[in-house]
Nucleic acid binder design. Structure first.
Length: 480
RNA sequence: GCCCCGUUCGUCUAGUGGCCUAGGACAUAGCCCUCUCAAGGCUAAAACACGGGUUCGAUUCCCGUACGGGGUACCA
């Protein structure tokens, strides 16, 4: 039995959980589940200035909402400080790193002067160890830089294949700041070694960091993990997805009525596919089909339109009972039902939900659709009224429908349909000639679920009242 | 500037040298189903960035160009 793979998701808590980050987390989670590995969550909070607990909580909430459960952590990178420093010191002692006494001002001036051509000049590289030790002992401020060796650093990227960097193109980068705290690449490498991470799966904006980290692994004598770099997620204009494209946070989509399973599925298909034509795939199915080898190289545009289509499919699939847990609070919030009615009218509401869930693309649309059935006064849509009530016989037909419903027993969906069809037959017209005007009378609109269900849900009393209101309106219009 | 990465319908993608008259999905349009809407079914329109090679044969392999993206910090 080989050792289980160990992967990690390592967000920095400086904001919300971005959909790009969520997808990275998702791919790590999927491969861990698929291969029976371990998924570790690490919060990269070494930048104390920008990191907040609020942000950490948002990220954790987002992952939980999506169903991305971590097996270990969250570990805070800041807690690893002593180890980061110890690793850096080992590098210093073995000569793989050296102290740099250049001041930030000197460096900034050089950068200003050289502009785009700027490279660290390696000025402190040649300082003899004895001198370096003495200056440090005397309290002279310094950073620690990694001594990039000659040669080439390459790796077989899981996504991109053979990738190589000339070491000459890599500056002697800082690993410890003047205040002794580690810089990103140092902290990450130290942590990934410590956590025994076997596969580093992250965004491809990290590709330039990878050779630096590999060099660090080698200098520390640690086994180098496998690397896989995921393509970026872009906005509709082909630019990196950012706030100006609108919603980019997982929480935003939750707010907008997207189901976690829909976002999960959608994100999984951004830069990966199962190799056949399946698209709507449940979590288990995705785990089953997932493989690192099928991840795409090309960045992908986040198409909200398709997300909502997929959300619609999940809304339809979701049992009304489950959806009810999400929708009921929204109905209460909108003042359409009371807390008590959520319980007392549960079956009725479930029936309504069953009818509406196929017709919505977002959870948030459901209260709007439900409103018609929960208020006393129907709002008439002018176009629907004009079109469906223009026949002068409308009032008469509604009267016939009213009569058919008044004494109908038993009051069932099937019974109602039968009564309405009989009424249409009695009037000598097609069913549509009865159903459409009635639909407008009952819902104010020319579009709704099946008329039999609508009548049933409104109840005999409610339906008759709305028919009467409609007939009054028609009478008034005729009189004028 | 330099260093990396990428480029198939508007969008997500299939495709690993002949199966490609380039397949599927979203969006769009039409038809069917039908009491309307939604869902569903069918159909249409829609793509291999460009130029050179290699090969009997390139969407597929190689090299350039163009375009896009990322990096180039005592940020992560």
């Amino acid at each position: 039995m080989p050792d289980p793979i160990r992967v990690r998701f390592a967000p920095s808590p400086t904001g919300y959980l971005h959909v790009g980050g969520a997808r990275t987390a998702l791919f790590n989670w999927l491969i861990a589940r698929k291969l029976g590995g371990v998924f570790v969550l690490r919060i990269e909070d070494t930048d104390r200035e920008r990191s907040t607990d609020e942000s950490t909580r948002t990220i954790l909430d987002g992952m939980t909402w999506l169903g991305l459960h971590w097996d270990e952590g969250p570990v805070h990178q800041a807690d690893g400080l002593p180890r980061h420093q110890a690793d850096a010191r080992r590098l210093l002692e073995s000569g793989r790193a050296y102290r740099c006494f250049c001041t930030p001002e000197e460096l900034a001036a050089k950068r200003e002067e050289m502009k785009h051509e700027y490279r660290y000049d390696g000025k402190c590289r040649a300082i003899p160890p004895a001198e370096s030790d003495a200056r440090a002992a005397a309290g002279e401020p310094h950073t620690v830089r990694f001594r990039v060796p000659d040669g080439v650093t390459q790796w077989d990227d899981i996504v991109h294949g053979e990738t190589r960097f000339e070491n000459a193109s890599i500056d002697d980068f800082i690993i410890l700041r003047t205040d002794g705290t580690p810089i990103y690449n140092m902290a990450v490498t130290s942590d990934d070694i410590d956590m025994r991470i076997t596969h580093v799966i992250r965004g491809d904006d990290h590709i330039p960091n990878t050779p630096k980290q590999i060099l660090l692994y080698q200098a520390l004598g640690a086994p180098v993990p496998a690397f896989g770099h995921l393509p970026m997620i872009l906005g509709g204009d082909g630019k990196k997805l950012s706030k100006r494209h609108g919603a980019t946070a997982v929480g935003d989509y939750a707010q907008m009525g997207v189901l976690p399973e829909a976002l999960f599925n959608f994100l999984a298909l951004l830069g990966w596919n199962p190799g056949d034509e399946r698209e709507v795939m449940e979590v288990d199915e995705l785990v089953q089909a997932f493989s690192l080898e099928r991840i795409n190289k090309k960045s992908a545009v986040f198409d909200t339109e398709k997300l909502y289509w997929m959300n619609g499919r999940y809304l339809e699939k979701k049992p009304a009972e489950e959806l009810f847990e999400i929708v009921a609070p929204l109905l209460v919030k909108k003042g359409l039902v009371t807390e008590a009615e959520v319980e007392t009218r549960r079956d009725w509401l479930l029936h309504l939900l069953e009818l509406l869930k196929t017709r919505a693309r977002s959870v948030n649309e459901i209260p709007k659709l439900a409103q018609t059935y929960l208020v006393d006064e129907v709002e008439y849509d002018a176009d629907s009224v004009a079109k469906q009530w223009k026949d002068p016989l409308t009032a008469e037909r509604l009267g016939a429908v009213r009569a058919a419903l008044q004494g109908l027993e038993p009051w069932t969906v099937e019974g109602i349909e039968g009564a309405l069809r009989a009424a249409a037959e009695g009037l000598g017209v097609g069913f549509g000639k009865v159903a459409q005007p009635l639909r407008v009378a009952l819902t104010g609109s020319a579009a709704s679920p099946g008329i039999d269900h609508v009548v049933f849900l409104l109840g005999r009393e409610g339906a008759l009242r709305r028919i009467d209101r409609a007939r009054e309106r028609l009478a008034a219009a005729t009189a004028v």
